[in-house]
Design a protein around this nucleic acid. Structure first.
Lengths: 212, 212, 212, 212
DNA sequence: TATGAATGAGGCTTCATTCAT
DNA sequence: GATGAATGAAGCCTCATTCAT
């Protein structure tokens, strides 16, 4: 069924099995939600059978965690590097951070994970804690750093960093959620440019030092 | 818990039963999610037995709809009236709308419904459609009206209303979602005043007509 | 809902309630079968509510028995009288018996009872016994009498009365069953004249004294 | 009862399981009727647990269809072959058809299926259609062919084939039904020879060309 | 390493029956 | 007599998980 690489039809590719399963799980979790996704469907999409996922993941919940780990962490790390190495106007950094989140996360399947966790983490405290520490916290720091950077440079007005960060992050999060919940049913998609323009305009005006 | 007008099983409460069941369902759906909530638990919390909910609601899904109908629609209507009757500066209207959404929805259990629908409506297209038409659409109109009002009065800069509306709504939505998913697990709550202040500051600066 | 006779809207007609319920039960049992018919539907069709049938019948099963009793017994009695009083050629008696069964039973709702008992009596030994003794046995006697009558008169050939009776009865029974089971789904109805003609031709030729 | 090729739960019998389940279902459906038979009981009798039947049959109704398919269709096919290959007097063919139906169907558990369908197909239109097309229709054709064959050869008198077929079939059908409904309760069984003799005598006399 | 038949707890829903009013 | 809200046992079906092969 699945395409085997050139090493011959029966090379079992032990190393790649787990990630194929994670990939399949990501797709299906995002499409249907955690509870509504059957292990068997994941197995099928990964080209294996019912029992195989259990060779690599102790339970459906562990598989859920692995999906988060493999999917989001690498992107977060790229984002962190991007901020760390930046030099220039805060407005530019802000725009870079926003566009990165948009391109590298919000427009990909990974956005579905965010929605997924919001949706179902409540029933899996383990997962929630893990996600919070490894994803949310680091993502928030990224934005807070940007805001502080702008304030320090005198580009942004003084502000309550913690909470402004939440307000700043929200539209991106919501865009991710919309694309993977109601949006799908109602068949309404988002125009990237119009969204980013409206968003960035509001941010730039809203954060900047007023001269009046 | 609930007041019994008579004793025990035969207390004849056709009028109050449905809302008791809806109330119980709201609590549990919000606590655990739709799929993870058992009808029997709803029944128990409402002080009845397994069969009783089915006297009033044809299925779990219909009960879900009723929860939305009874919970959110009245608030939406109040919001609509509030906007309809308003006269004065757009900034004040905006603030009123925001504070109303916050107090009357975001800080109550109803916020959980929003989260709930985001999370699970994907698997229940019926519910999704209903929620979109009756809640999302009307809520969005409310905000769009406010923005247009400000633009017409020259208080707000010209803008892409459709998309700015999304950006404006997002922080409230996220606050609602936050409180009912990760927030719960991480045990981190939001300081109302700091959140609203940061949010309104950003909005007011971000939307207003720049004089420069 | 139901038409009340002229004695005033609230004359409760105690005497007629049970037969109205039986009538409704007959209709529905015949339409849908015993197990598939809900007491509530019977009540509704009889113009009363869920609890009322239990005032007159201890259980659904007892109601079943009552339906048989009230529906079939009177017709059987008419048939018995018809045979008892007959004088004339056996062929004519046979035809009379056949046409009576056809008109007074097979073409009416009562045919449904026969089908009903065949179908479900197995699960209700009580009912089965009752039906056998009161309906089957007496019906069979009626036919056996007719055959004996013909043999005695030298019109019919000597025969194994017990078993020929079964063969003779079968087509009528089957016609009743067809009309109330597959026939309904497949939407195939029986042409009375063609059926009776074919049936009677076979019987007359098949039973008569051969001269060869 | 059943031969276990290996021991216990893990005996891997994908090939034999379905027929074991069908067999068990046939027994119980015939004994108790379709609606009154619980899947769990079928499972138990087949030596498996609740979930197993669903590995092979999508629903109780599909299992019912399978019972028909596996049970009756092969016999029908044998009957068709029998008629197709026949050469000789029509009376002999008729007798062969009758005796075959008797031995291969009416005297076996399969007779119960016929009764079952009559009894309950009304509530399962799918099954009814399937049964009608695959069993009733083909069975009827078999008999109609026989009658036409006799008429063509001048052995049988001219007749209304469609309806005479119904009359001819009825006694066999009734015998099948009888054995699986009232007969069981009343504990009255049929003497094969006496029944077939009476039946065939009636048919032969009733259908033949009279010389008078 | 991989399979996939089998398990069995658990959820949704139905409906005959009860009984306070 | 009549009502109809409430009960609760019971049935169908799903699916995460196990484990002999």
């Amino acid at each position: 069924m699945t395409q085997e690489p050139a090493t011959g039809r029966w090379s079992r590719r032990k190393q790649t099995r787990p990630s194929e399963i994670i990939e399949a799980a990501l797709d299906l979790f995002v499409e249907r939600g955690f509870a509504a996704t059957k292990i068997e469907d994941i197995a099928k999409r990964a080209g294996v059978t019912r029992g195989t996922p259990y060779l690599y993941f102790a339970s459906k919940e562990e598989l859920f965690k692995a999906v988060i780990r493999e999917g989001l962490l690498p992107r977060i790390e790229v984002g962190e590097a991007l901020v760390r190495d930046f030099n220039g106007p805060a407005t530019a950094l802000l725009e870079e951070v926003v566009r990165f989140s948009w391109q590298a996360i919000a427009k990909t399947k990974l956005a579905g994970i965010a929605k997924l966790v919001m949706a179902e983490a409540g029933n899996f405290p383990d997962v929630a804690k893990y996600y919070h520490d490894e994803v949310v916290h680091r993502g928030q720091n990224l934005v807070m750093y940007t805001l502080e950077y702008g304030v320090k440079r005198g580009e942004f007005r003084p502000m309550d960093i913690d909470y402004t960060m939440r307000v700043v992050i929200a539209p991106i999060m919501m865009a991710m959620i919309w694309q993977h919940s109601l949006g799908v049913c109602i068949n309404e998609s988002i125009d990237d440019d119009r969204f980013l323009d409206s968003y960035l305009s509001l941010l730039k005006c809203g954060l900047c030092q007023r001269i009046d």
